[in-house]
Design a protein around this nucleic acid. Structure first.
Length: 928
RNA sequence: GCCCUGGUGGUGGAAUUGGUAGACACGCGGGACUUAAAAUCCCGUGGACAGCAAUGUCCGUGCGGGUUCAAGUCCCGCCUGGGGCACCA
């Protein structure tokens, strides 16, 4: 019997399930290893071959670590709240819970076929009330916490209230939306409502009027990372800026820690860089400029305080609160008009419009703090209200945007750093000698920045300051299919739902759309009010409950902790968490760099402050698997006709491209014409212009998507070649972290390898394995493989491991080696990659128990050694011939042997070499 | 514009980190077995030139320089694919 993967795979998948083979222990004397995949959103389309790529890699590591004696936690679950299920519900009226359940079942079936070693007892689903009650608990903990800058930690809001009633804001250093000042008397006199309003300024989960990304098509707000180029990431709908009362997360409190934490994790550089860019730390100074005839001052933030003497005008954002107050009557009309015009522009317009410079003079003047000269104050939309202070001191000589503005409105340009020619463009380099700057003259830019800040602080004009680009994350979504926010409103004051009433379950609604008044879907629920004694009650019987739900990233920000104790009746079981600590290896796509991976670090640091999470970072090592791209097939239709032309002849016609289903194309790019005709109604009577009797398609590499008909389903591959072939082929395709197109053509090589390997053990239904002693060559073949695989486990270079397997098996086949001494370790080594086949072989070798926890065979360097080294002999660095020499020969004797060789003499042509270089074990180079 | 990454045969990709470039696989060409096909096995396969031949010589890792006995690998200057940030002061 040939290698019958169908039987083998079905048998061992059943065996693993029945024996609970991959159950992880929460208490163990073994060392632990936690290897995690980013859990999927169970979409209706099911899995394509790109999805399992990362899961296969993590499964290889998980299985390998088990062989190495680790207690491995390798769980899987579903990120099952989300927009697609909800939109499907809107269209069909089906409850999203139902479609989600169906999709999960399909995912599970597909995953099971590939033979992963997940501990399914630990499965989590973010949309399950058993899970989201704890997501809600974390929300309440965030609500009840403020960030103390002095300790660098989250602390109970009660402590802050105590501090306020004792000494007001004096001595309090808190992360806050606004810098507030009041005394203890003030605080104690405030109404409860006023006090709560102030507390919202400090809570880590808080409500605030903020400018949000509103997507009218989706009817909801979006976080910054969910917006790409002014369009929603899901669906690509336009997004506009809108002011709304919103729940937010004070992630900015942790900006510095999120930045610093990147130093201690083992992630790739580009991902760290993406997060650094997103956090966007910039060092500089806050400086106040007085205004002529006003007591208010304009505050600016600058990273170049050294250029302050070059400040020749100031620009306020159109939304800046001082604009109206300082504008002189004769400019009032023009300023008003300008502000309106700016307000009409969406974020997208502004971005598309970077080159048009617009602005308006206010008629007001500020006073330069050092020269006392008056400088004009303008309004301009290139200054953003949301960053820094919403105002800038313009130094046109050394900032290109200020420069463009100055040129447009003919404002003075004063160079203060040597090295540029400001007649053409701004000189922005952070180097050179400062000039025309009084006490800064002669200093280098770096020194001047420090001195300027020192002087600004001494004169009480401001201070050194660090700004971050990172914004607080909008947390409320006007949607149905998400975690309800456990808050009710008592006389308008947000109050936490009591712990005993969690989970606050999603109510039934009659439709999944917003109400006619524009309220979120939850406002439709018949029972969506709250009584602190009874819990959720019907309309009119309690206080109104919050109607927005949490965003998609809420559940995924802590699910990795839940896997440690998935059945615990509390957030986490302390003992389990103490044992598992953190995720040792996290595998997932880099598209989550500024979303999930940042938010979960934020929550983790918060939970660490509460002493729930033992570590400061959640994911020790992170690997981004590349995307598997689709290899689309395109056919060329002659314009205006229902005639298609083969790829090679397309240039002779005027054609348009049409995607064809890749299932209709064979590996030589030939189209199944009859299948294509039957594929779509309009193609039934299509004509085809062939080349050499065949119709060829063009190929294009694109994202794998239903839309391009280029989706390859792993089920089909499993049916045709088996899961082990699929697993190995996906790894063989190329480096894990690289994106690459799927190409089914190459799969035969890997499949052939597995059959060849099988034939080492079994032929004609009988076991070939014998008990003879292995010889040197056979041991070398095996140990070369063991060494390569062992080393590749650290670098995730599974593609080269598989090459090593092929070399080893080719060699053993050639040697006709079927010795147990070789084949037993070979089966274990294969187990992480092709687990079904490895189990089968292990069983055939006579072992009654499974292979999964058998010790991984160690390689022995002694078996890799050769009796003789083959030294390449080079002349002037060019290789000419090779010479075999004893392994333990000294440098000198190698040199002597080589110099006496006939060929050497031939190449030397009687000349004496200038130099002879012997690199032991590598090369001999003779320089003539 | 700034930052991070890559660029190697017809294709996917190797190369012990400065030491025989192109491992392994696909594809292609040739052969064996077979009535035939499938399957399997063997040989060849970067380019150019010379030779009946074994073989030999030269050129070759995006481009141009440099360091070195020796460069895909290190340094300088460009070109180019992918990703991130972006009127962020």
């Amino acid at each position: 019997m040939e290698y019958n993967f169908k039987d083998i795979e079905a048998r061992w998948q059943k065996y693993w399930q029945q024996n609970n083979t991959f159950k992880a222990e929460d208490r163990s004397t073994k060392p632990k290893y936690y290897v995690l995949d980013m859990f999927p959103y169970p979409s209706g389309a099911g899995l394509h071959v790109g999805h399992p790529l990362g899961y296969i890699a993590s499964d290889i590591i998980a299985r390998y670590k088990r062989h190495r004696g680790f207690n491995v936690l390798h769980p899987m679950g579903y990120d099952s709240f989300g927009l697609p299920a909800e939109q499907y519900a809107i269209q069909t009226g089906q409850h999203p819970a139902l479609t989600t359940k169906k999709n999960i079942q399909r995912y599970r079936r597909q995953l099971d076929k590939i033979g992963f070693s997940f501990d399914w007892d630990r499965e989590v689903r973010t949309s399950s009330p058993d899970f989201y009650r704890f997501t809600q608990e974390i929300f309440l903990r965030l609500f009840n916490t403020w960030f103390n800058k002095k300790t660098g930690k989250a602390e109970p809001i009660a402590d802050l209230i105590a501090a306020f009633s004792f000494s007001g804001t004096e001595g309090v250093e808190a992360a806050a939306s606004e810098d507030l000042h009041f005394t203890a008397e003030d605080w104690n006199m405030y109404s409860e409502e006023a006090q709560e309003k102030i507390l919202q300024n400090y809570r880590l989960a808080y409500r605030a009027e903020s400018t949000v990304n509103w997507c009218p098509a989706l009817g909801t707000v979006l976080a910054n990372d969910e917006v790409k180029d002014g369009l929603s990431e899901r669906g690509g709908h336009p997004v506009v800026q809108k002011k709304m009362m919103q729940w937010s997360m004070r992630i900015t409190a942790y900006a510095q820690q999120l930045l610093d934490g990147l130093e201690e994790v083992d992630w790739n550089e580009s991902l760290k860089e993406t997060q650094r860019n997103w956090i966007g730390r910039s060092e500089g100074a806050r400086v106040e400029f007085s205004l002529q005839g006003h007591t208010e001052k304009i505050e600016v933030f600058t990273t170049r305080p050294d250029t302050i003497f070059g400040a020749s005008f100031m620009v306020l954002a159109p939304e800046h609160p001082l604009v109206d107050g300082i504008t002189v009557p004769e400019y009032a009309g023009a300023v008003k008009k300008y502000k309106e015009q700016a307000a009409r522009k969406t974020e997208r317009d502004r971005m598309a419009d970077v080159k048009t410079i617009s602005g308006q003079f206010t008629g007001a003047y500020a006073i330069h703090p050092f020269t006392q000269k008056s400088i004009p104050v303008w309004v301009g939309d290139y200054v953003l209200a949301s960053y820094g202070t919403g105002a800038v001191m313009a130094v046109p000589a050394h900032d290109s945007r200020d420069y463009a503005f100055a040129r447009q409105f003919e404002l003075p340009v004063l160079p203060v750093v040597e090295g540029g020619d400001v007649s053409k463009e701004a000189f922005e380099a952070k180097e050179g000698t400062v000039v025309n700057s009084d006490f800064l003259n002669g200093l280098q830019v770096g020194e001047a920045i420090h001195k300027a800040i020192a002087q600004i602080e001494e004169m009480g004009l401001g201070e050194g300051k660090i700004n971050y680009r990172l914004r607080d994350a909008v947390f409320g979504r006007q949607r149905y299919w998400g975690e309800p926010i456990p808050i009710y409103y008592k006389e308008g004051i947000p109050m936490p739902v009591k712990a005993e009433h969690l989970p606050l379950s999603l109510p039934e609604v009659d439709a999944y759309l917003p109400t006619e008044e524009g309220e979120p879907p939850l406002a439709r629920a018949a029972a969506w009010e709250y009584d602190p004694e009874k819990g959720v009650v019907a309309k009119g019987e309690g206080y109104p409950l919050e109607t927005t739900t949490m965003p998609g990233w809420a559940g995924s920000s802590w699910y990795y902790l839940r896997y440690m104790s998935p059945q615990a009746g509390k957030l986490v079981d302390e003992e389990a968490v103490r044992y598992w600590q953190e995720v040792d290896l996290y595998v997932g796509g880099s598209e989550h760099a500024t979303g999930h991976l940042l938010y979960s670090r934020f929550w983790h640091k918060f939970l660490h402050d509460l002493e729930i999470a033992p570590t400061t970072e959640p994911f020790r090592k992170l690997i981004n698997q590349g995307m598997i791209l689709g290899n689309s097939a395109v056919v060329y239709r002659v314009e205006g006709k229902n005639t298609f032309v083969s790829y090679g002849l397309r240039k002779q016609y005027k054609t348009t491209k049409i995607h064809a289903d890749v299932a209709l194309v064979n590996s030589s790019d030939e189209l199944d014409v009859e299948g294509f005709k039957a594929w779509r109604d309009d193609l039934g009577n299509a004509e085809f212009i062939l080349e050499d009797g065949k119709f060829k398609v063009g190929r294009e590499v694109e994202k794998m998507s239903k839309r391009w008909y280029n989706v390859v389903n792993p089920d089909d591959i499993c049916a045709q070649y088996g899961a082990d072939t699929l697993r190995m082929y996906e790894m063989f395709l190329g480096p894990l972290e690289q994106s690459k197109p799927w190409n089914t053509a190459g799969i035969s090589g890997v499949h052939g390898f597995l059959r060849k390997l099988y034939r080492l053990y079994v032929q004609n239904d009988s076991l070939l394995v014998n008990e003879e002693k292995a010889d040197k060559k056979e041991l070398k073949a095996l140990h070369t493989l063991l060494k390569k695989v062992t080393e590749d486990m650290n670098t995730f270079s599974f593609n080269t491991s598989i090459s090593a397997f092929m070399i080893c098996v080719n060699e053993l086949t050639e040697l006709r080696c079927s010795k147990r001494e070789i084949l037993e370790p070979l089966a274990i080594c294969l187990s992480p990659f092709a687990p079904h086949l490895a189990e089968e072989l292990w069983h055939k070798l006579g072992h009654a128990t499974g292979i999964s926890r058998v010790d991984f065979p160690a390689y022995n360097e002694a078996h890799l050694e050769e009796d003789a080294f083959v030294y390449p002999v080079a002349f002037n660095g060019k290789m000419r011939f090779k010479q075999e020499l004893p392994r333990n020969a000294s440098k000198e004797s190698v040199e002597k042997e080589v110099m006496q060789n006939e060929k050497t003499k031939h190449y030397l042509e009687g000349k004496t070499p200038k130099k002879v270089i012997v690199v032991p074990g590598k090369i001999v180079n003779i320089v003539v």
